[in-house]
Amino acid sequence: MTALIEARGVSKRFRQHKRFPGLLGALKTLVTNEYTEVLAVSDIGFDITAGEAVGYLGPNGAGKSTMIKMMTGILVPSAGTLSVLGRTPHLKRMDNAREIGVVFGQRSQLWWDLPLVDSFTLHQRIYDIPAARYADNLRRFSELLDLTPFLDRAVRQLSLGQRMRAEIVMSLLHDPKILFLDEPTIGLDVVAKDAVRRFLAEINRERGVTIILTTHDLQDIETICPRLIMVDHSRLIFDGELRSLRAALGSARRLTLEFASDPGPLPLRTAALVSDEGLRKNYLIEREDISLVAILSEVGSGRGLKDVALHEPDIEEVIRTFYQRRNADQRSNAKARAS
C-alpha cells in the first residue's frame, strides 16, 4: 500500500524583511534590503496512508499551519519533497484542490452576507458536484451536524459553533479523499467541540476520509486521531500511536491510597510518596512494569486500606512532563557548554 501523503525532509524557511523600530526605523526599513530568516518547518518526514486520522500537534508557532499549507499546495517547501495523492501539491494546485477539503478554524470560507445554503450551492458550482450527489451529501452531513434548522439564515447571523460545523460540511461536499483541518475546534464551547469531534471521527470511520488535523487541544486527538505527530520548534519530536506516546515520553501514573485510620508514614519501594495527608496518601509510579497488585501486596492487608485510585496520566500531563524535561535538558546542556 503506497502512502497517500509522503513527506521527505520537508523544510520551510521564510524570509522576512527586517523592520526597524521607530519613525527613523520605518524610513530605514524602506531603503534597506536586510532579511531575517525564520525556519518554520525543518526536515520533517512522514507517510500517511489512506483512511488514517492523524493529529498534528504542537505549541503555537511550531509550524503546524505551515505544514498544512504546504500539503494543500498554497505554500512551496524550501527543501525536501512532498507528495499528496501522487502529486507535488504546489505544482498541481488545481488538481489537488478538487480532491482535498480544507477547513481553517480562523478563516471562514463561507459567504458572509448570504444564507448558508447559498454558500453550499456556490461550492457545488465551484467543484462541479453532480446534483444528486450534492443533495445526498448535504442532507446526510446537515443531519449529522444538525445544520438543517439554520440553512436559510445568513452566515453573519450564525454563532461560531454553527459556522464551524457549516465550514466542515462544506469542505466535505465534494467527497474529498483527504480532509485537512487547521485548528477546527478553536474558540468553540464544549458542546460544539464534542459535536465536531464525533462527526469527524465518524466521517473517518464510515467514509474512509483521511483526516489530518492540527490542534493544540489534546482532547481532539484523543477522540479523532489514533495517530499523533508532534512538532516543536519546527522539528518532529514524536510520530506514532497515541497509546505509545506515554511509554515513549515516559510519564508517571499517580496512585492515591485511602485508609480508615492513619497508618503513619508509609514509604514504598514500588511507588514514590509525593504527599501525605494522613488518611490519604499520594504516590507516583515511575515504572511502567509495576502493577497495582505488586503495590498492594507491598502495602499489606493489616493497614486498614479503604480505597485505591490509580490515575493514568492524561495526555496533557504527558506532554507537559515532556516539555519540562526537555527544557531542563536544554538548560543543563547550556550550562555544560558555558562551563
Binding site: 499546495g73 498554497i74 484542490a97 478538487r98 480544507v102 481553517f104 478563516r107 470560507q109 465551484i126 467543484y127
Partner: peptide, 12 residues
C-alpha cells in the same frame, strides 16, 4: 490578511 489563500485553495 491572507484571505487570498482561501481562493488559492479552490479550483478557481
Amino acid at each position: 490578511t491572507g484571505d487570498v489563500a482561501i481562493w488559492l485553495l479552490k479550483p478557481l
